[in-house]
Design a binder for these strands. Structure first.
Length: 376
RNA sequence: GGGGAGAUACCAAAGUGGCCAACUGGGGCAGACUGUAAAUCUGCUGGCGCACGCCUUCGUAGGUUCGAAUCCUGCUCUCCCCA
């Protein structure tokens, strides 16, 4: 997998690049819609391509492993074929579920022992079998199996967890390098930096991760409840160490402002459930600020969802109609809101790329951050 | 015409002497959501100050009682059954 940097902003650490996979090129900085269980919730593949202009989507090892299960995925010929998506896919390893489903699991040296949230059945994820599963899924980018520490997290636990993640990384890389893709397209394996909000741990983790020569590197364990300043500080520390010529992926982030701040600190890839989940719950991100479409003030506002919005739904439907749909819990409301938000996110990173190329990213970013803070 | 049941906040529906400004659900209003166990969750929802408190509420008019949404009487209205 090849990564080529095209331009630096010059005033910040922002840069543009192209990541080339066997399923096509990804222009960075990029936002990757989350499609946990083989679907970007509420958005079909055609709209994802033609309207949202998604270049890559996520899948989740934990969820796909439980349902439909690896047997089905293998029979289908991998996730791409199963869901009929011929652009790149990145799969999270299940490390986040180790965090979010903490009540149902136990961490041991060998891996994470957990019970399915669906039927209570017992399973074990190890750094090795998580690679195997992601081979079967056929993700273009395979994520290391890590522990995403919670916040707050005391320094002793953060260190132990980080060290475990590092030992798991070594095992995961070994398994990955010993095995082959199943479907004829190339796959790559991204390690993940941990270390909670502790600068020394983050440095140590970034150095450890960077000591492996991989196609890209991820930063995990952030945006789990810590103040944003701490998150930004950790990104800065880590990005000083991660190789400049490789893509950097900030996992699970974030708000549009977080993304702009991340780009300006040298992050190339982002993913987050926010545009889809918050969209389903009535929150719209626009160029002029945030809209809670459920608020009564939109009840009789028949203006377009967003003037000059990036999605066709922005001009086709009114705020009043979308409000009605969301308030009435009509499925179409969730679909429209998800399309709108995803289109906005992809517009945001596309615009960021243009501004970086022009060398005007810094001022544009500050202007946008100002607008994005507004509650309409 | 005869017999029976009932009227509680926006709606539905608990409550049958003090623990009731009144359970609960819906609706309404607002908030949360960051590698998705989330089309989910939380709060508020008589008035005024909005913390403590005070004032006015359970069809309506009276009455009994230290005290009533709860007991008694009149009135109004609604529903059901029989003719």
């Amino acid at each position: 997998m090849k990564f080529e940097i095209n331009a630096f902003d010059g005033h910040t650490k922002a840069r543009t690049g192209i990541l080339t996979t066997d399923h096509g090129q990804i222009k960075t900085p990029i936002f990757m819609p989350v499609g946990t269980a083989g679907s970007v919730k509420g958005v079909n593949q055609r709209d994802l391509i033609s309207d949202v202009k998604a270049q890559i989507i996520l899948g989740n090892t934990y969820h796909l492993f439980l349902r439909p299960g690896i047997e089905t995925l293998e029979m289908a010929g991998g996730l791409h074929k199963f869901i009929n998506w011929n652009k790149p896919v990145l799969t999270d390893s299940g490390g986040y579920q180790v965090f979010s489903l903490a009540d149902n699991r136990k961490l041991k040296e060998d891996g994470a022992h957990f019970r399915s949230h669906i039927d209570g059945s017992k399973h074990v994820f190890t750094p090795e079998n998580v690679v195997d599963i992601q081979r079967i899924i056929g993700a273009d980018i395979v994520m290391a199996f890590d522990e995403c520490t919670p916040f707050p997290c005391d320094v002793d636990y953060a260190r132990k967890s980080m060290e475990l993640t590092h030992r798991w990384l070594k095992r995961g890389i070994k398994r990955f390098d010993e095995t082959e893709p199943l479907y004829g397209h190339q796959q790559t394996y991204f390690p993940i930096v941990q270390g909670s909000v502790y600068k020394d741990l983050r440095i140590q983790s970034a150095e450890t991760i960077a000591s492996y020569d991989r196609d890209g590197y991820a930063i995990g364990g952030l945006s789990v409840g810590e103040p944003v300043e701490e998150m930004y500080a950790m990104i800065e520390v880590v990005n000083e160490i991660l190789p400049e010529n490789k893509p950097r992926y900030l996992m699970g982030v974030g708000t549009p402002v977080n993304i702009l701040e991340g780009i300006s600190r040298g992050i190339d890839m982002f993913d987050c459930v926010m545009p889809t989940r918050n969209g389903r719950n009535g929150m719209l991100f626009t160029k002029e600020g945030i809209i809670n479409i459920k608020n009564v003030k939109w009840k009789n506002d028949f203006s377009p969802i967003e003037e000059n919005g990036a999605s066709f739904v922005d001009h086709k439907f009114s705020k009043a109609y979308l409000r009605h749909l969301i308030v009435s819990k009509e499925i179409l409301g969730a679909q429209i809101a998800s399309l709108h938000n995803l289109s906005f996110y992809l517009w945001l990173v596309t615009e960021a790329r243009h501004k970086i190329t022009e060398g005007t990213f810094a001022s544009w970013k500050n202007e946008m951050i100002h607008k994005l803070a507004v509650r309409l």
